[in-house]
Design a protein around this nucleic acid. Sequence first.
DNA 1: CGAAAATTTATGTCAAGCTTAAATTTTGGA
DNA 2: TCCAAAATTTAAGCTTGACATAAATTTTCG
Lengths: 80, 80
Amino acid sequence: MPIRIALDEVLAAKKMKAKQLATLIGVSETHLSLFRSGKVRGVRFSTLARLCAALNCQAGDLLTYVHDEADLAASEEAIE
Amino acid sequence: MPIRIALDEVLAAKKMKAKQLATLIGVSETHLSLFRSGKVRGVRFSTLARLCAALNCQAGDLLTYVHDEADLAASEEAIE
DNA sequence: CGAAAATTTATGTCAAGCTTAAATTTTGGA
DNA sequence: TCCAAAATTTAAGCTTGACATAAATTTTCG
């Protein structure tokens, strides 16, 4: 997956524990853990907004796109 | 909603039409239109990745968080 | 005007966001 | 080296909403 979640880095920079964040924004520790380790396939903006608010950062600080040529082949399947 | 979608700006900068983008990344024009006008409540990373790939930009260029104090009160409801 | 292009509305499907609970693993101090 | 607390993972389920297609409505512009 070319969208990398950099939550751990931001968390470390703010010297905040995942648990604190979870409590602060009202999301389960379970889900936050899955999110941190990149095991989710998307986010609700409401959740993203709360993360940004709590960490005082931008969406781009949490989500970074790692370029992958394959992403552009999305519409052209059946190439075989 | 404090997450602002800046797709139109990026699109304009790249001088690309929404329709071209939709075709390029394989998403319906309908949905892309809803997305552009901020009428969706979230994104799948697969879609975000394709947008970034096609526009050659970062996730942060498309999604920006507009600070809103209210976001932190997310967990404290029942305040009345 | 009028037709093509773009946006919106309507409807529906199905994936997955997120939760709670329990199991498993990791961590760190005594 | 233990063991208990903390953190992560697994499991199961509820519910939302991403995204699609089709049709209606609106906008664009020659």
